[in-house]
Simulated scan of single mutants.
Amino acid sequence: MSRTIKNQSVEQLGGSGSVLARQRREHEEMDRLMERYGALVDPGRRAAVLKQIVQLVFSHAFAEETVLWPAVRASVSDGGELTARVEEEHQQINDLVADIERLPAGDPGREDKVRRAFALIRQDIRDEEDLLLPRLQEAMTTGRLRALGTTWAAVRHTAPTHPHPVVPRRPPGNALLGIPLSAYDRLRDVLGIGGSASRGER
């Protein structure tokens, strides 16, 4: 019987290098940052935290879609159905955050979109930790989970950091576009320019 990875020990997850432990650590960081955003009042500090959330969420999701979900589809009997559900959530988050990045800070609809995006991120975390990742845990040895974690981390640290809604959710399309988009996003991060690439810029 599969069970959530939320309350398992690091050892049960396969050690700190396991893809399951790496996923959970970043999920916890996302939740911490969203809580912090909600507690802040100063617009400048809120904008800085939102930028952190966006960068983390999109690099994390790209590594999932490029490395982790193909492994789930190859190892879990209903992996296609499980990953399709999560990919749909990722697409909705992509679309919402792309809208957020296009809207000025004072726009009345912006905060509503932020709240909706945060709710979707939290739902996505629960679906992954309660439904999808436990199935992967059942299907893989500890050694395979650790090897997958190493590959996932390498992709995660070179992934795009902003939404790109028209990019495919699955390889090879997302992987082929990942390198130029990552360079584009990270240059914009360094220069302090927010926003996702438009279709024309790509």
Rank of each mutant, 00 (worst) to 15 (best):
D99E: 12
A197Y: 07
V190S: 11
E111H: 05
I100T: 10
L56W: 12
R156H: 15
P168M: 05
V19R: 00
R45T: 05
A48Q: 14
R146E: 13
P168L: 03
A139C: 08
R169T: 10
R188V: 06
G14N: 01
P165L: 06
L191P: 15
N174S: 13
L33M: 14
S196A: 11
E87S: 08
R156K: 15
R85T: 07
I179K: 14
F118T: 07
L13V: 02
P180R: 12
L191R: 15
T142N: 09
Q55L: 05
H164R: 11
S2T: 05
A61Y: 11
G80H: 02
P104G: 03
E89P: 02
A119G: 08
V167L: 14
G195W: 10
R3V: 00
A183W: 10
A183M: 09
E128K: 15
R45D: 09
P172D: 03
A197S: 13
H90L: 02
E29S: 13
E129I: 00
A197M: 10
A147H: 13
A48F: 02
D112C: 00
A61R: 08
R188L: 11
E29V: 13
L181G: 13
V67P: 13
V49D: 09
Y37W: 11
L96T: 10
E64N: 07
Q55P: 06
A47H: 02
W152E: 01
L33N: 12
Q92T: 10
R46L: 03
D124R: 15
D124L: 08
R25T: 03
Q23D: 01
P168T: 04
R45L: 07
A71Q: 04
A98K: 15
F62S: 13
L50K: 11
V67G: 06
R169S: 10
V67R: 09
I121K: 08
F58T: 08
L96R: 14
D127F: 01
T66L: 11
N174I: 14
H90C: 08
E88Y: 04
T142Q: 14
R25A: 08
K113Q: 04
V10Q: 03
I53A: 13
H27W: 07
D95V: 15
R135T: 01
L131C: 03
R156D: 03
G109C: 01
R188C: 12
G178E: 12
A39M: 06
